[in-house]
């Protein structure tokens, strides 16, 4: 007999562990595809760095940013996006899952719906993003215990910010129906904005990056967390992450009450 009332953190951990094991097994079903997709993403990120390298060879310092800072910004952005996409790979698909009625399967099972949805997919390309982040940090980062811990905190915050923002955008599907297009556009814009030095934006654009579109909390991490530790910025980044995550969860729960299901034929992959 199942133990409906026990559960707790151990049960959730066992469930997540099995979910991730199964996701990985599913991704490894197609060996060549796995290697190609992960490898291509790794190379794609490197090409961006190559362009930044060309840029900084002409303008060595831009608003206080050097090539190393931009490389670490990419390491944090790609690495953060990578781990969250590896472990919670459905975070970019919430709008699709809601608007096509795929949520039914998760709602029919007893685990927390949002966690179950998020952990039920692993993005293969994300492995390339994550490894890219680690490689860049090993290359230009501060290779000390403190440096590694700060980088790990940066990855954690960046990943959770990506997750929180996409959760908000994905939840739009509960209220406006088909919002898959908006979600894809929002993801693209947010990723782009988080990979440009935040110091190049001024005035309203800068205010936006630290409020409505909080990509600035990711792109400024190489400076405010890694280069010159700024306790105010780090506290603000942690608070923003908690606020965005918390409000995203609340929005999802509220949205579930308006969920309208659907009749699309679906399979878990």
């Amino acid at each position: 007999m199942s133990t409906g009332d026990s559960g707790g953190l151990r049960a959730i951990a066992a469930f997540l562990g099995t979910c991730w094991k199964i996701n990985l097994a599913s991704a490894l079903e197609y060996r060549l595809s796995f290697a190609l997709l992960a490898g291509m993403m790794f190379i794609n990120n490197f090409i961006w760095l190559f362009f930044w390298n060309l840029f900084f060879s002409r303008f060595p310092i831009v608003q206080g940013w050097e090539l190393r800072d931009v490389m670490l910004m990419w390491a944090i952005g790609a690495g953060g996006f990578g781990w969250v996409n590896l472990l919670f790979g459905n975070f970019t698909r919430i709008a699709t899952i809601v608007s096509t009625g795929e949520l039914d399967l998760y709602l029919a099972q007893p685990k927390p719906v949002l966690l179950h949805v998020l952990a039920s997919r692993m993005s293969i390309t994300a492995a390339g993003d994550f490894v890219f982040g680690l490689v860049i940090f090993a290359w230009v980062g501060e290779r000390t215990l403190l440096g590694a811990l700060a980088f790990a905190l940066g990855l954690l915050l960046a990943g959770l910010l990506f997750l929180g923002v996409m959760l908000h955008v994905g939840c739009l599907a509960f209220f406006i129906g088909n919002s898959e297009g908006i979600a894809q556009q929002a993801l693209g814009s947010f990723v782009s904005l988080s990979t440009y030095p935040s110091s190049i934006f001024k005035g309203a654009a800068r205010a936006m990056l630290f409020s409505l579109i909080p990509a600035g909390f990711i792109s400024y991490l190489p400076i405010g967390l890694l280069k010159h530790f700024d306790p105010w910025f780090v506290t603000a980044a942690i608070a923003a992450t908690a606020l965005i995550g918390g409000s995203g969860i609340a929005l999802f729960r509220f949205g579930l009450k308006r969920y309208a299901s659907g009749n699309l034929i679906a399979a878990r992959s």
Binding site: I22, S26, E29, E102, N263, A266, R268, S269
Partner: peptide, 11 residues
């Protein structure tokens, strides 16, 4: 649900 599978398609 006859039209919604809970089995993992690739596994």
């Amino acid at each position: 649900f006859g039209q919604k599978s809970q089995l993992w398609y690739h596994l």
